[in-house]
């Protein structure tokens, strides 16, 4: 006769198998999508027949191997990564502080609103060009990415704090919990899912703006600078190789942040302290 623990184990196995099956299907369709995109690219490149306009996928892969064989490529990756981390951290810090203050203080929220609307409406390229007048080459991408990512963090923190469950606030009010404790133990933790979603978008945006800023300001050791140098040499395959490296790094950092935030959230809500 099958015991209760045996049936529980087999049920767990069924659930695990189903989850693995879903993952395999998801992965399979993902690979199929990439394959279809490469095939379309291959067909389009064959049809155009000019490496200057659209090189073949193989040429881009070869260029990527060639440039990644040089230490300069890796130094450039590290340089861009450093700028992204700096811009992203700065936007987390400033956006976290002003987002919290704006959620707690309506006049401050109104005070910041025109500035944030202006920043959001300003085209990235205009911002980069203006920053080039003010800052050294290496500072331009950091400043521009910060200004683009900051409103996202500010908005998500502010919205998260404002969306706190009113019933929990009412409970805290009955027990006369001090405002400082309400902020740190109720409002900010409530905002964390909003904050993580905003942070993920801000990270992706930071990569895009940092590389765009590097492309125009040309700092030493940067993915954008590599891309621009390749463009000036009319080496389209290398431009695409540098762009591919950027997309890969951006995707990987977003993926890593997604995993970290999911684990953090799970741990925060479920595991014993």
């Amino acid at each position: 006769m099958q015991s209760a623990s045996d049936s529980k184990t087999s049920l767990t196995q069924v659930v695990q198998n189903q989850a693995q099956g879903h993952l395999a299907v998801k992965l399979g369709f993902g690979i199929l999508g990439v394959g279809a995109a490469i095939l379309t690219w291959r067909l389009a490149a064959g049809f155009i027949g000019s490496s200057l306009i659209l090189p073949l996928p193989g040429e881009v892969a070869f260029s990527l191997m060639r440039i990644s064989a040089h230490s300069d490529f890796w130094v450039s990756v590290l340089g861009s990564l450093r700028r992204v981390v700096l811009a992203f951290s700065l936007s987390l810090l400033v956006g976290g502080i002003t987002g919290t203050l704006a959620a707690m203080n309506k006049p401050f929220k109104s005070f910041l609103a025109p500035l944030l609307t202006t920043i959001r409406a300003t085209p990235v390229l205009a911002l980069i060009l203006i920053a080039m007048f003010w800052l050294p080459a290496s500072g331009v991408p950091i400043f521009s990415a910060f200004l683009m990512a900051y409103p996202l963090i500010h908005g998500s923190v502010c919205a998260g704090i404002e969306a706190v469950d009113p019933e929990l606030l009412q409970m805290a009010m009955v027990f006369k919990v001090p405002s400082r404790i309400i902020l740190f133990k109720l409002r900010l933790p409530s905002a964390s899912p909003f904050f993580l979603t905003g942070a993920k978008s801000a990270l992706g945006l930071s990569w895009k703006v940092v590389v765009a800023g590097e492309l125009l300001s040309q700092p030493a050791f940067a993915l954008g600078t590599g891309m621009q140098d390749a463009r000036l040499s009319l080496d389209t395959a290398s431009v695409l190789a540098w762009a591919g490296a950027t997309v890969f790094l951006c995707g990987m950092s977003e993926f890593a942040l997604g995993i970290a935030s999911r684990r953090l959230e799970k741990r925060r809500m479920e595991l014993p302290a």
């Binding site: 805290a172 404790i181 133990k185 302290a273």
Partner: peptide, 13 residues
Amino acid sequence: LSCLDNILFALSG
């Protein structure tokens, strides 16, 4: 918050 911290939260005033 843990069970204990939930009670301590109410007592934090």
